[in-house]
Deep mutational scan, measured.
Amino acid sequence: QKEELKEKAKEAVKRGNKDKARELLKRAGISEEEAKKIIKKIE
């Protein structure tokens, strides 16, 4: 489940939808700070 949400978040970032990505990562139980780092890494 968590990995699936991370994959979806990756796709969202690639489409330029960072808010959606952050939302998905939060749903995966990832903190706001972690989510920001992950999104930065994907960009």
Rank of each mutant, 00 (worst) to 15 (best):
3 E>W: 10
31 S>W: 03
8 K>A: 13
29 G>E: 02
22 R>E: 12
3 E>L: 09
13 V>H: 03
41 K>T: 11
39 I>P: 00
35 A>S: 06
9 A>H: 01
19 D>G: 08
13 V>Q: 02
21 A>G: 01
33 E>P: 05
21 A>K: 01
37 K>T: 09
1 Q>N: 13
34 E>C: 11
17 N>T: 03
43 E>M: 11
9 A>M: 03
7 E>P: 02
5 L>G: 01
2 K>Q: 12
18 K>W: 14
41 K>G: 11
17 N>Q: 12
5 L>P: 02
29 G>D: 02
36 K>A: 15
2 K>R: 12
6 K>W: 15
36 K>N: 15
1 Q>I: 13
27 R>L: 13
6 K>A: 09
16 G>W: 03
9 A>C: 04
4 E>K: 11
31 S>C: 04
24 L>S: 00
32 E>K: 06
41 K>A: 14
5 L>M: 07
27 R>S: 08
9 A>S: 02
35 A>P: 00
11 E>F: 04
14 K>G: 05
30 I>K: 02
37 K>V: 11
1 Q>E: 12
14 K>M: 14
27 R>T: 05
25 L>F: 07
13 V>P: 01
1 Q>P: 09
7 E>C: 12
6 K>T: 11
13 V>Y: 12
26 K>N: 06
21 A>H: 01
17 N>Y: 11
30 I>F: 15
14 K>E: 06
4 E>P: 03
33 E>A: 10
17 N>C: 14
4 E>M: 12
1 Q>W: 15
30 I>S: 02
4 E>T: 10
30 I>M: 11
25 L>Q: 00
11 E>Q: 10
7 E>N: 10
23 E>N: 05
2 K>M: 15
12 A>F: 12
11 E>H: 07
15 R>P: 00
15 R>S: 12
19 D>P: 06
34 E>Q: 06
1 Q>Y: 14
34 E>F: 05
36 K>L: 15
13 V>F: 09
7 E>A: 11
31 S>V: 03
42 I>A: 09
22 R>M: 15
4 E>D: 11
41 K>E: 15
21 A>F: 05
5 L>V: 05
39 I>S: 01
1 Q>D: 13
15 R>Y: 08
41 K>D: 14
13 V>M: 11
25 L>H: 00
19 D>F: 10
39 I>D: 00
17 N>L: 12
29 G>N: 02
20 K>N: 05
8 K>D: 05
26 K>D: 08
13 V>R: 03
23 E>G: 04
30 I>Y: 15
16 G>F: 04
31 S>Q: 05
1 Q>C: 14
16 G>D: 02
39 I>N: 00
16 G>S: 03
6 K>V: 15
29 G>L: 01
41 K>L: 13
40 K>F: 14
39 I>T: 01
19 D>K: 12
25 L>P: 03
26 K>P: 03
3 E>H: 09
27 R>N: 06
3 E>M: 08
32 E>N: 07
28 A>L: 08
20 K>V: 12
31 S>A: 06
38 I>D: 00
31 S>G: 08
6 K>L: 15
10 K>V: 12
30 I>P: 00
41 K>R: 12
31 S>F: 03
10 K>N: 04
30 I>T: 02
23 E>V: 05
7 E>K: 11
11 E>D: 08
15 R>T: 09
6 K>E: 10
41 K>I: 12
14 K>N: 07
40 K>S: 13
40 K>D: 15
30 I>V: 10
23 E>D: 08
28 A>G: 04
33 E>I: 07
39 I>M: 06
27 R>A: 10
42 I>Q: 04
41 K>M: 14
12 A>C: 11
15 R>F: 07
15 R>M: 13
23 E>H: 06
41 K>S: 13
28 A>Q: 02
38 I>M: 09
14 K>D: 03
20 K>Q: 12
43 E>Q: 08
28 A>M: 06
30 I>D: 00
30 I>N: 02
5 L>N: 03
8 K>H: 06
26 K>I: 14
39 I>L: 08
21 A>M: 03
7 E>T: 07
34 E>I: 06
28 A>I: 04
10 K>D: 03
16 G>M: 05
42 I>F: 14
5 L>R: 03
27 R>P: 00
32 E>T: 06
30 I>W: 12
32 E>V: 07
12 A>M: 13
21 A>D: 00
36 K>G: 10
18 K>G: 05
39 I>W: 04
20 K>I: 11
37 K>H: 10
23 E>L: 09
19 D>I: 10
28 A>E: 00
27 R>D: 08
6 K>M: 15
31 S>N: 07
17 N>M: 12
32 E>C: 06
34 E>R: 05
36 K>T: 14
7 E>V: 07
20 K>F: 13
4 E>R: 12
14 K>W: 11
36 K>V: 13
37 K>P: 00
2 K>S: 11
33 E>K: 09
2 K>N: 11
8 K>T: 04
2 K>D: 10
13 V>K: 02
29 G>P: 00
22 R>A: 10
42 I>V: 08
22 R>Q: 08
8 K>I: 07
20 K>Y: 14
4 E>Q: 10
24 L>G: 00
9 A>V: 15
8 K>P: 01
30 I>R: 01
34 E>N: 05
11 E>M: 10
14 K>Y: 12
27 R>V: 04
41 K>H: 10
12 A>I: 04
42 I>E: 04
31 S>E: 06
40 K>M: 14
35 A>Q: 04
14 K>S: 07
2 K>H: 11
6 K>H: 12
29 G>H: 01
32 E>H: 05
10 K>Q: 06
28 A>F: 04
14 K>L: 15
12 A>P: 03
26 K>Y: 09
17 N>G: 03
36 K>Q: 13
42 I>N: 03
4 E>L: 13
5 L>I: 06
28 A>K: 01
22 R>P: 00
43 E>Y: 10
35 A>K: 01
25 L>A: 03
33 E>D: 09
22 R>C: 14
37 K>L: 13
12 A>E: 12
25 L>N: 01
26 K>V: 12
31 S>Y: 03
15 R>N: 13
12 A>L: 15
20 K>W: 15
29 G>S: 02
2 K>E: 11
